[in-house]
Amino acid sequence: DSLSIHQLSAQGELDQLIACLQKGEQLLNRPDERGFTPLMWAAAFGEIAAVRYLLEKGADPHVLAKERESALSLASNGGFKDIVTMLLDKGVDINVYDWNGGTPLLYAVRGNHVKCAEALLARGADITMEADSGYTPMDLAVALGYKKVQQVIEAHILKLLQR
């Protein structure tokens, strides 16, 4: 039995991933049945070496899955700041939104991932974008009682006002 390229990416099985891609380049951006590419699986499960390797091989970081999920949102949701930074360095849309209006910043806040929220805010994530339910990142931080994330957003707003 062999694992699919999506499973190899998610499990960070780099040697097998390299071998698998050597057999078939076209697998690099192969979406699964919900539209998730190997890069998205690696980003969702925090496999930084796999993310780095797939990007080096030319994996497309801009691909959206069927419900507009993105590698950046998956990494932000998981709190994987280094992967968030890698994807932002590839110029992905920092304000991409999906099926419930979720943006990378909203997922970072929802997961109480302070470092991810800081990284996204530092790179200009839009703090006014609301989820379909009308919650902004600040609303969400307050509603969930995530004080540190709330402070990070407040500090960012102050910085914007001072400019």
Binding site: L3, A10, M40, W41, E69, N77, D98, S133, L140
Partner: peptide, 21 residues
Amino acid sequence: TQLSLYTSPSLPNITLGLPAS
């Protein structure tokens, strides 16, 4: 050897469980 499979990634509903804003 038993292969362990990860379940497909997914993104949660942002405001599940919160009152309507």
